[in-house]
Design a protein around this nucleic acid. Sequence first.
DNA 1: CTAGATTGTCTAGCAGTGCTAGAGTTCGGC
DNA 2: GCCGAACTCTAGCACTGCTAGACAATCTAG
Lengths: 190, 190
Amino acid sequence: MPSESRRERARAERRELIVRTARELAEAEGWEAVTTRRLAEQVDYSQPVLYGHFANMDAIAAAVALQGFEELAVVLREGRADDGLRGLTRAYLGYAEEHPAMYDAMFVRRTELVFGTTDTPAVLREAFTEILAGVTPYVTTDAETATEVFWSALHGQATLNRGARLRPEHRQARADLLVDLFVVPAVDRR
Amino acid sequence: MPSESRRERARAERRELIVRTARELAEAEGWEAVTTRRLAEQVDYSQPVLYGHFANMDAIAAAVALQGFEELAVVLREGRADDGLRGLTRAYLGYAEEHPAMYDAMFVRRTELVFGTTDTPAVLREAFTEILAGVTPYVTTDAETATEVFWSALHGQATLNRGARLRPEHRQARADLLVDLFVVPAVDRR
DNA sequence: CTAGATTGTCTAGCAGTGCTAGAGTTCGGC
DNA sequence: GCCGAACTCTAGCACTGCTAGACAATCTAG
């Protein structure tokens, strides 16, 4: 029956509208500004409509986060293709800086997104796989662990760069040094 | 006048009680459980009393965070005395794991504590100085930047260790590799 | 020892939050 | 045109941080 599929389509569109609007609000004013009331008003529906699509507010943020993982995977791939591990690093930290609200949704806000298990969303693994591919050439054994270390180091810089916790003028130097730790033998480091 | 100082003392004691209770609540049930009502009930005063001591809830969390920085500085010093950069790393990640609520207050929760500027609390610099002392022996130039990189890497591991975002069974291997990156020439790494 | 001013403390309430029950409306199929 | 299902809204609950204004305790001065 066609009416059924039209409804499905309308539902999917509205769901998309909610996610898009939540993202816009978060990127414009931060996640603390994304309340059910403001979001409902913005999409021109009442609050209960949100709950027809998502179990709760966190699920909406998780949907936005999923978009972020897709974008991050793309950005990392491009950065790596352009300039290997150094390009990947630049891409990661660049994305985190340009989209702090997205980065929050993905990594800082407590979320129900599972990471290490088998039912981890595929797109979430993709980003990790990109980092793995970037790190692998420079390690001899246990690339997985090395990748986790490198990613953690990236994540640390991404979060501490915020709020002037690290000297802003040395942002680039920190990124460079991190890459050097993996690609340049210690004896040759400047 | 003695009555004045007694009052001062009573005030200071009550302030201490508030901070201690907030910490206990946070460590037992997480910061989302630390509400003005619960905290007030726990210290057996009404909510407005809290505001006689602190401007808002965040200021209370900041006071707890300050305690955390003191403890972290001590722990880092001991760890470094015991086993250099490796001991310091173990101490840092150990503290973060054993006191997640404290670590949140110090580094994850948005706070008004200033970091990089001149009016940064002394105790906050101490912890950084410890890491600096641990890293310095292994770098030739720009120890400050190297310290920021190392600290960021520690912070990344500390936060991502939570919520099964990194494989729990490789926790130690990640810590070891991070230290190796600084102390062992790349060519000698396993 | 009492009167007055100063402190301290509490009750009650505001404006906001996430979330939901139940009423009301719109719509598709017959 | 009618009925039942799907949908959407209004109104409200229990909570949050925070505060104004009433009340009580305490100290100072005569």
